[in-house]
Amino acid sequence: MPRPMWVGSLSFGLVNVPVVLFSATRDRDVRFHQVRQGTNERIEVHRVAAGTDEEVAWDELARGWETEDGDLVVLTEDDLAAAQPEKTRTVDIDLFVDLAEIDPIFFQQPYWVLPRGEGDGPARAYRLLRDVMEKADQVAIGRIVMRAKEQLVALRVQDGLLSLTTMRFADEIRDPQDSGAIPSEEVEAPTTREVDDAVALIEEMTTDWEPERYEDRHRQRLLALIEEKRREGEVTIPEPEPEPTPQRASKDLLAALEESLARARERKEPAKR
């Protein structure tokens, strides 16, 4: 089993479920290390006190808060745990909601939740919460403090286990009105025919959701590059393809939609499945 990412309890009414969290994601990125150009010697990163050569070990580190007048306040992990001790160790379930109500934009990091501790008590309390949530088909909303930051969490049942996903607070999500992402109303409105054609094209291009079919091409390309470099001693860098020309006029857009639609239908003809 991997290392637990958090140790604490779920609190549901007055019922306390001692739990551990394990990451539900893993990094599959191709790992590189740093070397010095020319000599190829390996690089190590050392933490030193600024302006000196004194190395600082992991357990000597703390967090520094810079005040507006330039003072530095040092906070240790123990200090931070004392800020809201209950929250640092307990996920308080505040309410239960329907999963479908929560827009996926809120979700961040997923974890698996497992019961912790000796005896039958924790496993039984865990089982009770899992069963009752599964039956009600509800998601529990609570909060957690991890790495000195409070986050909302959604607790739900997946494959017979409780999972916990950290969530963003509403004030951490931007309004596209503020960033200027929403096109101005002055732009020529879509015509019925354009939207009908676009919907038809979207429907033609609709498939099942099969997440396993998507491979990380970045990882594959990197591994291919490494192999090429190892064998040939160099890498051929491909020319980027030219960007396609956008259809700025309405008639060009319609033509592109209809052409794409015709092609998509043709492709579907030799019945896929």
Partner: peptide, 11 residues
């Protein structure tokens, strides 16, 4: 409270 600096050192 000394600030920490990350130094890259050749092994």
């Amino acid at each position: 409270g000394a600030r920490i600096q990350h130094k890259r050192i050749g092994v």
